[in-house]
Design a protein around this nucleic acid. Structure first.
Lengths: 215, 215
DNA sequence: AAACTAAACGACCGGTCGTTCGTGTATTGT
DNA sequence: ACAATACACGAACGACCGGTCGTTTAGTTT
């Protein structure tokens, strides 16, 4: 039987619910205005709670920001990493992850397009715990991509000379800039170009052309 | 003889000087904190003028922001476009522009790395005159890159099938993301990878390998 | 039913924001 | 010499910021 008060106590349950609702809204709003641009007053209005109610969950704004990064990272894993892992190891998985990311953008899951782009640009020059946490998230994402490339090399689906760090950078850069280009100029064309770029790059390297779509 | 009061009147001269000094500092500070994150109070302290002194030059903050974008665009032309035009037409000019941009980042001309990355991420979801102006700047930059690609195609230095829009997107994305990667994780490695990526891409397309460096 | 506890509230704090206003001070034209 | 002009200033404004306070509401325990 479950006797953990955190799951049986109705008060704490209610608290956890609103905590999660707040974090979800915070990530969505921060994808537009940034974690610092987001004000507690407006976040309160958007979630329907009072401003002072926040301080029952977090001692200050910075702790809320850190939890928002955590929440966004989890969302990224759920929406991009995990679906990608459904594809078979090698270049197909690598490309599936890239496509999952592009889908994340074109489906407009977040109103601002990408939480991490906004927050990375916001905090890359502002030392502190938030920057540290954001840097770790980027580092883990790049390490994940690098691992997928290395796996593809081991499987012989990419040539032994392929540099995992190099390819991971290229795939990330081509994917991330879709957000800015699509929102500021093209609409959907940027995602098509980011897909095309990575697809051509991988097809040029992969000895087995049947592993990747032609277009 | 010059009788234009704007250049002979010592008062207006002094005004223009401080106006330009303010804009230069504004662009530098906005590359770190963004155009909205930048406060007039701190900008005043950084330039040594009083906060109220701004309103002798601009009716409000938004007009200052618009002029800052203009100033940054001019700086971009001076530092990246014009030096690139010194190279001979074709793939060499295209690559020279890319390298000039990477140099702009690695030389830390702006304390935040790139004014436009910060401001694009800040305003891509905020309608208004600033967003419009920023979008135009990006559009002009992409059009410039596209023109360089088209020119290289005409010269036979890139195959007729090369898509200028596609290549312009790739080169911009690979270059821009250097800012985030270098500041958040790698240091200088991101610039090396961005250079390598574009160089390999162009060398793979260019029929004359002598036009581009080997490494 | 009384005692306790977690969550959420409204009112308010000091501080900073962008902006306005009245004044001072050089430099200019007459 | 003396207004007129252009720039810059200090003081102050209302709005909003993150954060604190004492209190109320809802759920649990005994």
């Amino acid at each position: 039987m479950t006797t953990d008060p955190a799951t049986t106590d109705g008060r704490r349950l209610r608290g956890r619910r609103s905590r999660e609702a707040i974090l979800e809204r915070a990530v969505a709003l921060a994808s537009v205005e940034g974690l610092d641009g987001l004000s507690l007053g407006r976040l309160a209005a958007a979630t329907g709670v009072s401003k002072s109610g926040f301080f029952a969950h977090w001692p200050g704004k910075e702790e809320l920001q850190l939890d928002a990064v955590e929440w966004a990272a989890q969302q990224w894993v759920d929406r991009i990493v995990r679906p990608g892992l459904a594809a078979p190891r090698g270049v197909r998985r690598l490309f599936a992850v890239h496509e999952a990311r592009l889908r994340f953008y074109t489906e407009k899951v977040l109103p601002g397009g990408c939480f991490f782009l906004t927050v990375q640009a916001e905090f890359d020059d502002r030392p502190g715990p938030v920057r540290t946490r954001v840097a770790r998230a980027l580092q883990e994402w790049i390490a994940f991509l690098r691992g997928l490339v290395a796996q593809a090399v081991e499987l012989g689906e990419l040539p032994p000379g392929a540099d995992p760090d190099q390819l991971a950078y290229e795939i990330d850069a081509l994917g991330e800039m879709v957000v800015i280009h699509s929102r500021l100029l093209d609409g959907e064309e940027a995602a098509v170009r980011a897909r095309r770029a990575v697809l051509d790059r991988l097809r040029a390297l992969c000895p087995d052309p049947s592993l990747l779509p032609e277009d």
